[in-house]
Computed example of a mutant assay.
Amino acid sequence: MSTYSLHFPIRVPDDVLVELGKFTGTFWSDSFAQEPFVIEAIRNYINPAPPAPQQPVEATEAGYQWKQVFLPEGTRLRASFGRQPYFATVVGAEIKYDGHAVSPSCFANLYGSGNRNAWKAVWLRLPGSNEWLLADVCRSARKAAIARLHGDGVQADGQRSPAPERPSHDVAGIERVSIPQRSTVRQTGPRPSESRPSNDPAAPQDNGTQHRSGSGRSARRRKRRAAKQIPGNP
């Protein structure tokens, strides 16, 4: 396989050549001496070396307890005022800023009017992490973890939620079902066994028991009056 030697001039800024000459120990205008370093730099740029594995962070019990959030030693705190950030670090069991121990609220209000909420103004970067998280987000996540630890019946604010209503069961464990009772309709009319009085004068009156003709107190009175009217009767 034949190879070709291609020679193309590449312009390099003067300041870069000067810095490369100082780094390699060669004179900046000696192109033949700087050629291998330039080639090595290009190849390293095309095929970068794999990143070194991160060393595991040793667990430590030291740190600062900020309400529900625990800040392990080495935690970085960041706040800003006038778009200028400033930082603090957890050292041992204290938050240190410029060599002085401060509270989260004091750190958040080092500059300004002094009425900022530290949970909304302070960002945290825990040891071994490259991400900055708002302190209020860490607090919400910690509350949710506490709720899961104590069960679903405990809310994030620590109060126990009311238990759901369950249907009552009898002794045999069968669910009781309440059946609506049928409404009772009072019968206002006469019962089938009762006879209805007829409006016909010729129809015989019956109140449930038919009396024989000529019986009763009225009939006896009529008989006595008829006997008195017979001559010879006292």
Results as ranks from 00 to 15, higher is better:
M1P: 12
T3K: 13
L6C: 09
H7M: 07
I10H: 00
R11T: 10
P13G: 08
P13H: 01
D15Y: 04
D15V: 04
V18W: 00
L20E: 01
K22P: 15
K22H: 13
F27N: 15
S29G: 13
S29H: 04
D30I: 00
S31H: 00
F32D: 15
F32N: 15
V38Q: 00
I39G: 06
E40D: 09
E40P: 06
R43C: 07
N44D: 12
A49M: 09
P51D: 10
A52P: 13
G63F: 08
G63Q: 05
Y64E: 03
K67T: 07
L71D: 05
R76N: 06
A79V: 03
A88R: 02
G92A: 04
A93H: 14
E94W: 05
G99C: 04
G99Q: 02
A101S: 15
C106L: 12
C106T: 07
C106D: 12
F107T: 02
G114H: 10
G114W: 10
N117D: 14
N117H: 06
K120D: 15
A121V: 08
V122D: 03
W123M: 07
G128C: 04
V137T: 12
V137C: 02
R139F: 03
A144N: 11
G153A: 13
A156N: 10
R160P: 01
R160S: 07
S161A: 14
P167T: 08
P167R: 08
P167G: 06
A172G: 14
I174F: 07
R176S: 04
P180E: 15
Q181P: 15
S193P: 00
S193A: 10
E194I: 05
P197F: 11
N199G: 05
N199E: 01
N207Q: 03
R212Q: 07
G214E: 00
G214S: 07
G216W: 00
A219R: 02
A219Q: 01
K228Y: 08
K228C: 04
Q229V: 09
Q229A: 12
I230W: 03
G232W: 03
